[in-house]
Amino acid sequence: MSEKRPSLSPARFLSARRRHRSAGLVVLLFGLLAVGSAYAAFAPDNAVADNSAQSQQIEEGKKLFAVGCASCHGLNAEGGGNGEGKMAGPSLIGVGAAAVDFQVGTGRMPAMQPGAQIPRKAPAYTEEEIEALAAYVASLAPGPAVPASESYDVSKATDEQVTRGGELFRTNCTACHNFAGRGGALPNGKYAPSLMGVSEKHIYEAMLTGPQQMPVFSDQVMQPEDKRDIIAYLKALQTQKDPGGFGLGRLGPVSEGLWGWFVGIGLLVAVAVWIGAKGVKAKGAKAK
């Protein structure tokens, strides 16, 4: 330390040591550190919090999927063949949590047998299992999420909203689901199901995801308030009694015509027969 060395500027300091044995290692470490912290700073939040309950739920959903769904929809939900080149179950990548919640929550999935249309039945999974399955399918690719409960809460719906919902329903839904939401026939054994007894959430999800033949009514076109009004109208229909007597399924002219022909005209025929029938005669007696 006897000789006083001239102080070096940082650039000259680095330049002087650039051929140092450990220079390469130092640069590599520095680069890794920079990339790592940049990733941590810019990566989405949920990726950071991923290792908590959600990933556990997805993991659980994946297990349930492998047992109950994979035979038709494929081990990775990529869609499955049934050996004859026909699709046994469609790909579920990108269908979103809402589709799973609808299909499993209404009991349509798991399907008992392939057919023209998969009917509604009692759900086979519990709420938590459905949530897990939905979380797993949602984790495969982005898709519509299960709607928040306030978006389909119609307990405070005004008459105005119900009326507007009725207008939207008649424009967009009655073609298949009948003017009173009682459902109707489609070609080749398919049908639009009755909307009686369907929960608010499932009606919302059906519009959002377009299950089976039903077209999609996305939130951007049929906005959440429109959907809520339609649900309010359907809830009003579901609780409506049949004023003045029998609803006859509210199918319109077919059931009403049958009733008219067989019951109405049948009664008239019975009366006509009574009018024309000969009364009992007192054979052999003389009138007094």
């Binding site: 939207l168 424009t171 967009n172 077209p215 009514f217 996305s218 951007q220």
Partner: peptide, 17 residues
């Protein structure tokens, strides 16, 4: 129809009516 809102192509998903 009914709401009179214009439509963007990005609003519509495959299968939409």
């Amino acid at each position: 129809d009914v709401t009179d809102r214009p439509i963007k192509p990005s609003d519509m998903v495959v299968g939409q009516l």
